[in-house]
């Protein structure tokens, strides 16, 4: 099962490499990983999307927690949460027909065209990882995808619950 883990850790040199190293060392899976400092820039927040059964997840959470730099870890998928991922995708838009179609699909998914070239559109789309995947599949049927980049998902719990020091 897919899980989204939020990790709050010291914003120090080497902290990220410890997390990544731990996952490879213990053969845990990483589907995506994002990292950036938080509003308090002594802290970093990492979001990892991973796949594993309950037993593996228990070990992942415990092992990450054991790292000296880590302050907190939570499995967002265990409760109500908001999950978002950013996609930037460059597609071929060579004819009027394909430009219209790409614009239409982009509108349906609530994407925004952020750059236009002679024969390309660059589209920005935010949403759940599933939505992004669906968008890419739809685009693929209509035109040629020249380049795409996904941020990996970030997430936050709904309601009062907060991941803070």
């Amino acid at each position: 099962m897919r899980h989204i883990l939020s990790i709050l850790l010291e914003n120090e040199a080497g902290a990220l490499s410890r997390i990544v190293g731990l996952f490879s060392q213990r053969a845990f899976n990483i589907e995506s990983l994002t990292v950036a400092p938080t509003d308090d820039n002594t802290l970093s927040r990492i979001t990892i999307a991973t796949i594993g059964d309950d037993r593996v997840l228990e070990q992942i959470v415990k092992q990450v927690n054991k790292l000296v730099d880590v302050i907190k870890i939570t499995d967002l998928t265990k409760r109500k949460h908001v999950e978002r991922e950013l996609l930037l995708v460059k597609v071929a838009a060579v004819s009027d027909k394909s430009r219209t179609e790409v614009k239409r699909i982009s509108d349906i998914f609530r994407g925004a065209i952020v750059d236009i070239g002679k024969q390309i559109y660059t589209i920005e789309l935010t949403g759940s990882s599933d939505k992004l995947t669906a968008f890419i599949e739809t685009l693929n049927n209509e035109t040629e995808i020249i380049e795409s980049v996904r941020s990996g998902c970030v997430g936050i719990a709904r309601g009062e619950k907060a991941l803070r020091v």
């Binding site: 040199a13 080497g14 490499s17 410890r18 190293g21 060392q25 000296v68 730099d69």
Partner: peptide, 9 residues
Amino acid sequence: RPIIKHSFN
């Protein structure tokens, strides 16, 4: 890194 409890640069 995989064989220490912690390290410091």
